[in-house]
């Protein structure tokens, strides 16, 4: 018994050591720095809550928080709908289903920074060319207004991550016992009834996992934001991560940037924890 306990600790010590060094220690240090005036160089002094007081009047920060929330909300919903639809599609009896899985997953191979760069051309040039050709005015001037910047980011994110979410739903869809579907077929259930009463309740744990993954990844987005819109026009599409990077590293206000990071962390943690809590509760209810 002693021995077993010892081998457990041997196996997890490397992870504990490394996560303590690169996650737990920085979280504590970061909390501490947010009360100082550290600017990247030199000695720091305690200045109490003054960064947090300054945050209350920081319109740009508030705007990027609000933008990030709206973005996360919309993209989480669309991502899960698209991901689940793709999963239903590629688990059906199509001949091409294996090829399609690969196709839908392919965007994940390319990093967000580079995808943003490619999509920038598509939104600006190709959309404009299509708009001029078809006369649809909605295709002109993409990325030049806050609204088109917002939707462009949503489209890019959904396009990039839907394949990943699809894989998660595939896992749960494959776990549904075939007899259940067959007996529903014998009872004459419509596709909608099958989805609502059999598939949906059985893949509920999949919602918990993919909601958690999409929620936390949408909150953290930086690369796509930087290369697609660069925060423009006039910082209207700047998300929190970018706001923190700009504050800390471009204007060298490390400690002030860190106070934003602390607030951001608290918000993200609250959201993710309550999402997991409610989804778990719902799973039990179903």
């Amino acid at each position: 018994m002693r021995n077993k306990e010892l081998s457990f600790w041997l196996f997890i010590t490397p992870v504990i050591l490394s996560l303590s060094l690169v996650v737990i220690l920085p979280v504590i240090m970061g909390f501490f720095y947010s009360f100082t005036d550290w600017n990247g160089l030199g000695f720091n002094q305690f200045i109490g809550l003054s960064h947090y007081r300054r945050l209350l009047d920081d319109n740009q920060f508030r705007q990027s928080l609000w933008f990030t929330f709206r973005f996360a909300f919309v993209s989480v919903i669309i991502l899960n709908i698209v991901g689940l639809s793709l999963a239903l599609l590629v688990t059906s009896k199509l001949k091409s289903r294996n090829l399609l899985r690969t196709v839908f997953f392919m965007p994940n191979l390319i990093g967000g920074l580079i995808l943003g760069f490619i999509w920038q051309f598509i939104f600006i040039r190709v959309f404009a060319a299509l708009g001029n050709f078809t006369g649809i005015e909605g295709l002109l001037g993409w990325l030049s207004t806050p609204a088109t910047g917002f939707w462009a980011l949503v489209i890019l994110t959904v396009w990039q991550q839907a394949g990943y979410i699809m894989i998660i739903y595939i896992a749960y869809l494959q776990g549904i016992p075939k007899e259940l579907i067959e007996s529903a077929n014998i009872d004459g259930a419509t596709p909608f009834q099958k989805f609502k009463f059999i598939i949906f309740p059985l893949i509920a744990p999949g919602f918990t996992v993919s909601m958690f993954l999409t929620l936390s990844s949408s909150f953290k987005i930086y690369d796509q934001n930087l290369s697609l819109t660069g925060g423009g026009p006039f910082n209207s599409t700047q998300m929190v991560a970018m706001n923190i990077v700009d504050t800390a590293f471009s204007s060298n206000q490390m400690a002030y940037g860190q106070s934003k990071a602390v607030i951001f962390f608290i918000i993200v943690a609250t959201f993710s924890l309550s999402q997991v809590y409610y989804s778990k509760k719902r799973e039990v209810d179903l």
């Binding site: 457990f8 970061g30 936390s216 953290k220 929190v240 490390m254």
Partner: peptide, 30 residues
């Protein structure tokens, strides 16, 4: 393996998945 307190440690590790990298960047740099 079995150990007391195993699930507590595991949950702490899972929690760390929620920390946005932007929140760690400045202290990590330092």
């Amino acid at each position: 393996h079995k150990s007391r307190g195993k699930e507590v440690i595991y949950n702490i590790i899972l929690l760390s998945m929620m920390i946005p990298f932007a929140a760690l960047m400045v202290p990590l740099f330092r």
